[in-house]
């Protein structure tokens, strides 16, 4: 907006030749649209392992990006991609995706696992992952309706110690078996 006046005064020809000199820094949409090549338009991932970002908590996105950048959170591409952005840009992208309308995935889930996962969630996770993972508390992410394959990969990273967790979370998660974690992933994925 700052330089709009000047820009108006420029002829189209000058604009075409040196537009970048007069352009504003990337907007939240410009930054975030590029993510859609993997995460889907507006963060509505078509799955099966790329997480949907539409309607995700801003804090969770910013924290994830910071974790990717520092290397604290294990990653494939995200560790390098996060190095391409500033903290202010993480905030902008977090804001953009958190404002998109939440997206419900449609995937085939195992009913028995969902039922077992619901119980395990009640017992172990519900204190922090409130409203069945639909709502956010502190910096916990929205997990309801997320792609199950993505949740499974995250659970595996926690369980193997590749991804660090708070003591409170570790206390709850460590004793769970692989099939328990599987069930919990199916449960969160099932929540509409």
């Amino acid at each position: 907006m700052r330089i709009k006046g000047i820009q108006w005064a420029l002829s189209a020809a000058v604009l075409a030749m040196s537009a970048s000199a007069f352009a504003a820094p990337p907007t939240p949409a410009m930054l975030s649209n590029a993510c859609a090549g993997c995460h889907g338009t507006h963060g509505e991932s078509a799955g099966p392992s790329m997480p949907a970002l539409a309607g995700q908590s801003k804090v969770a996105i910013v924290e994830s990006m910071k974790g990717f950048k520092s290397g604290e959170r294990p990653a494939t591409v995200m560790g390098r991609l996060a190095k391409g952005y500033s903290d202010a840009e993480f905030e902008a992208m977090g804001e953009f995706f958190s404002k998109q309308k939440p997206f419900t995935t449609s995937q085939t889930l195992d009913r028995a696992k969902v039922a077992k996962g619901a119980e395990l969630h009640e017992k172990n996770c519900a204190r922090c992952h409130v409203e069945n993972g639909k709502e956010i508390k502190d910096n916990s992410p929205v997990m309801a309706g997320q792609w199950v394959k993505y949740l499974e990969i995250q659970m595996a990273d926690y369980h193997s110690g590749k991804r660090k967790m708070f003591d409170r979370k570790a206390e709850k998660m460590k004793p769970l078996s692989q099939s328990d974690l599987d069930a919990i992933a199916h449960f969160y994925a099932s929540v509409k």
Binding site: Q7, A23, P25, A34
Partner: peptide, 25 residues
């Protein structure tokens, strides 16, 4: 394509242009 679309819309509406930010994977 997204950056081009953004700035075509800006140009056609007399709005300020926005710098490119993109990804390759």
């Amino acid at each position: 394509a997204k950056a081009c679309a953004t700035n075509i819309v800006n140009l056609m509406n007399g709005k300020e242009l926005v710098d490119f930010s993109g990804i390759n994977t």
